[in-house]
């Protein structure tokens, strides 16, 4: 950076505004750029899984029990190479990972978006209506946030029963409160600003003020939370599946794959648990790197 203290009477050159600045800022961090690239690749692999994976791990007809527990690099009876080995049912671990990523990413994204929608609506509604509804809603939020997510999720699964869909529902119920609290806090600050006052003076309808004025200003924190939440949801889904409360044995997610490998770990068959775990780890780290940067870039305190 050059700093001249003489001969420079011009104003600082104008910064590119809005989203282009945010995007430019984002990629200034090498960690975030790598994380983003990795994430794109992972998403690509997950989407293309049915076409690129050597085997459909959910199709029991394709599995050969004779190929069970083969070490990485082994060749199957049919000449297929299991690059990352197979599990006890003869399922190719690589294919299992690719399909598992689909489940993980879907669970993460769906639950984060749904929780964001519900939480944001609740937060905005609370901030806008005030009064008893707000108090009641926020009490509920406080109550819920005083318990850890995994406990909320366990509670929900205890009531709803096992399964991936129920895991998604449990995650949504466990996470909406975070959004509601943040959005309400932001909206309350925003509400007091003059432009909202002006909009009210103009007798704009309430929903219009909500959607056109309050909502856009609350979006930044929602995006930040949602990014991090995807990573958390993926981790939680894997954890719950590992505990046997999520995906079924026949259609394993990453957590379930790791869980099935658990019993073979002690006999040295590490690959069933190890590789899916690495895939999970890379996914979560990549999202967290991106999320960390998104938070820094969108934080108005760091904007200057």
């Amino acid at each position: 950076m050059t700093v001249s203290n003489a001969g420079n009477e011009t104003i600082a050159k104008s910064e590119p505004s809005g989203s282009s600045r945010v995007i430019k800022d984002f990629f200034r961090s090498p960690g975030a750029a790598i994380g983003f690239a990795v994430l794109i690749i992972i998403c690509g692999l997950a989407i293309l899984a049915p076409w690129i994976s050597p085997q459909n791990p959910y199709d029991l007809m394709q599995l050969d029990i004779m190929d069970g527990r083969l070490a990485p690099g082994s060749e199957s009876m049919k000449g297929l190479v299991y690059h990352l080995g197979t599990d006890s049912q003869g399922r190719d671990i690589l294919s299992g990972i690719l399909y598992g990523l689909r489940t993980s990413l879907t669970v993460g994204v769906v639950s984060a978006i749904a929780a964001a929608l519900i939480g944001t609506s609740a937060g905005l509604f609370a901030a806008y209506t005030r009064g008893r509804i707000e108090t009641g809603l926020m009490r509920l939020v406080d109550l819920q946030l005083s318990f850890p997510t995994i406990l909320m999720a366990l509670m929900m699964l205890a009531v709803l029963g096992k399964g991936v869909t129920n895991v998604v529902i449990a995650l949504i119920i466990a996470e909406w409160a975070t959004y509601a609290r943040t959005v309400r806090a932001t909206a309350l600050v925003e509400r007091e600003k003059e432009y909202i006052e002006a909009a009210r003076m103009l007798r704009l309808p309430g929903w219009r003020i909500l959607l056109r004025h309050l909502l856009p200003n609350c979006l930044a924190p929602v995006i930040v939370i949602a990014t991090m939440q995807v990573a958390r949801a993926i981790g939680l889904e894997a954890t719950l599946s590992f505990l046997g409360l999520g995906a079924s044995v026949t259609e394993p997610s990453l957590g379930m794959l790791i869980s099935t490998g658990y019993q073979y770990l002690l006999t040295g068959l590490y690959w069933i648990s190890f590789f899916p775990g690495v895939a999970l780890l890379i996914t979560i780290v990549a999202i967290n790197l991106v999320g960390d940067r998104v938070r820094d870039v969108l934080n108005p305190r760091n904007a200057s």
Binding site: V3, N5, A6, G7, N8, E9, T10, I11, A12
Partner: peptide, 13 residues
């Protein structure tokens, strides 16, 4: 601002 002082005497302008 000290980042953009005029040339010569700072008070010149």
């Amino acid at each position: 601002a000290i980042t953009m002082l005029p040339r010569g005497c700072s008070f010149r302008t």
